[in-house]
Design a binder for these strands. Structure first.
Lengths: 328, 328
DNA sequence: TGATTCTACGTTATCGTTAACTCAAAAGCG
DNA sequence: CGCTTTTGAGTTAACGATAACGTAGAATCA
């Protein structure tokens, strides 16, 4: 049994489809009893407006594209929840896209989202380089970036203040007396990594010190484990480790365990992001907590404004908060 | 600048829109040089077929709805990745819906997905009761349930063999000499919980024993922590704990830490699901590993078959695999 | 009472794409 | 050379919803 359409209801009610449309959309235009009859029949036939037809006519799909590098990274699900929370309140749905693999994949996804005529996109941690990114973004009615900026007219952005976060991490370790500090820097190509390093450089300069070593790696547990092993084996005297994210920090914890390094006694480790996992490992991980749910909400609100043609704010910066636990 | 449409290309190329449609869809119907010219112009104008118009015409949206109780639960992102992997290979995209709250919300989501004219739905751990569930499912062209079954003509299903999994968990503890076993049973209303308990009952019967205590709780870390505290405080002599899932088990680990119970010396704990977290806690958690990515892939493949009207299999059972680590 | 405004609808046309059909010219064939 | 087939197109109509406009009859007003 295929879906009922307006004309089915119209026939059953002895009116024109237009009248049904008006009644079901609460735009009046029919007498009280006719309206009641129409609503009744619509209910009986389980009428569901065809979003495709509506979208075609109105040039609005009611869908927003959400692009994340990897949903399996616990950083993103919470952002998605934040986005969804606001989106649903405003009648939008999420078309979720996982990038996972290559930047080529990002291009493909753009084409798909364009075809779907999404009303906007929220793009988390885009890896595409500036030029193609801007080009891709221009073909959307509205766009918001998380963790990246472009000119305001191209897209809004929600930024995490990695500089201050990394700076706080370093100060925290320094205040605890750590002087020989290594850095697990995450993906070399990533902006987030660069900014953290900038934040660190500033503080190091103030302190008249510098990092003992910096190693790049993939932003997951294994990457952190490998990078920290490399770093710690080459620089045994390191007593503080600043990690790109919590996953990397957990990897470092594993390495310490394997190498017999006591945390925090021999080595203080601090992560970034504040994912739930950070509380579950032992020692509990100190971290710079980022309010991911809020980021999602803010991003979606900003997108809504852009969809409606307002440009109240084009950039919001979220500041990570130091949570000192047992790893430092 | 709004999007180019077929007629724009047609005008520029001096042909009819139909010809452009045929050429761009590789259905021939134009000479080689005309075809080349059309493709060239389409590229220059950054033409993207309007999926709404196409969907309206063809009654296919190219979208599948995915419903999960909570993406923040690490069990689901991997399933989603599996689904997406297969979906993208076949030209489908995912409309992701998080339930989070109430069963009412599930009903709302159904209406939305119906309106969007999704080509099918994959519904994970549906909580709706039988009648409304069946009613909801009937209005889709194709549906696959994960963790739930209904009559085969209503929906396919991917089931996890909780009975055997729970049975294996119990045998494992028993073989290690544990005789006073408690159960953290997860949500009382959940099918998964019931089935696990059935599996346990069978084995307990064979062994001529029974569980010391069974406590229900929410399926997250905190639920596990609270439930295990309740259980352990009331039954100090318990030496084995079978948990509904890994999150619960991690909660139990926390409780043990707080109560000074040594794991696995005093108490063996085993989880379920095999989420990454299980490997990161200390002691590493023994668990019944479920291949979530495969579940996603299998589910999507099954959905594809149903979308195409085939009904090769209507049910697949995935068996959890015991992974013995340090918590037992 | 005649003019005007409302009420409660109906008609038409359109969004972008494409299936089905049509058709003229070119190519192939005996 | 006349006939059929193929090639390279164009035309029409439809998918379902709805904006814009039209209209007959009832109600209101001067």
């Amino acid at each position: 049994m295929s879906k009922a359409k307006l004309s089915d209801i119209a026939r059953a009610a002895g009116v024109s489809p237009m009248t049904v449309s008006r009644v079901l959309n609460g735009r009046g235009g029919a007498g009280p009893e006719t309206s009641e009859r129409i609503k009744q029949i619509a209910h009986e036939l389980r009428y569901r407006p065809n979003a495709l037809a509506r979208g075609l006519k109105s040039d609005k799909s009611g869908i927003v594209g959400v692009i994340v590098p990897d949903i399996a990274n616990p950083f993103f699900p919470e952002i998605i929840r934040g986005i969804e929370n606001v989106a649903l309140q405003h009648g939008y749905n999420l078309l979720l896209c996982n990038v996972v693999e290559s930047p080529d994949r990002e291009i493909d996804l753009m084409r798909i989202l364009e075809s779907q005529r999404v009303d906007g996109v929220i793009w988390c941690s885009a890896r595409l380089s500036e030029k193609p990114l801007v080009k891709a973004l221009q073909s959307f009615k509205a766009a918001v970036l998380v963790n990246r900026t472009v000119e305001p007219q191209i897209a809004g952005s929600i930024m995490i203040d990695y500089r201050s976060g990394a700076a706080d991490a370093l100060k925290h370790l320094w205040n605890l007396g750590r002087r020989r500090i290594g850095v697990i820097a995450g993906p070399a190509a990533s902006r987030g990594s660069m900014e953290r390093l900038e934040g660190l450089r500033t503080v190091f300069a103030d302190l008249g010190a510098e990092a003992v070593a910096t190693v790049y790696c993939t932003p997951d547990v294994n990457g952190g484990a490998l990078a920290s092993r490399e770093l710690l084996e080459a620089h045994g005297q390191v007593d503080g480790l600043i990690c790109y994210n919590d996953l990397n920090a957990v990897g470092a914890l594993q390495t310490c365990e394997a190498l017999g390094i006591r945390v925090p006694d021999d080595l203080g480790i601090i992560g970034f992001d504040g994912i739930p996992l950070a509380e579950f490992v032992r020692p509990k991980l100190s971290t710079l907590h980022v309010d991911k749910y809020s980021i999602g909400q803010l991003g979606m609100r900003m997108l809504l404004e852009r969809i409606e043609g307002k440009f109240v704010q084009h950039s919001i910066v979220v500041r990570p908060q130091l949570i000192a636990r047992n790893s430092t």
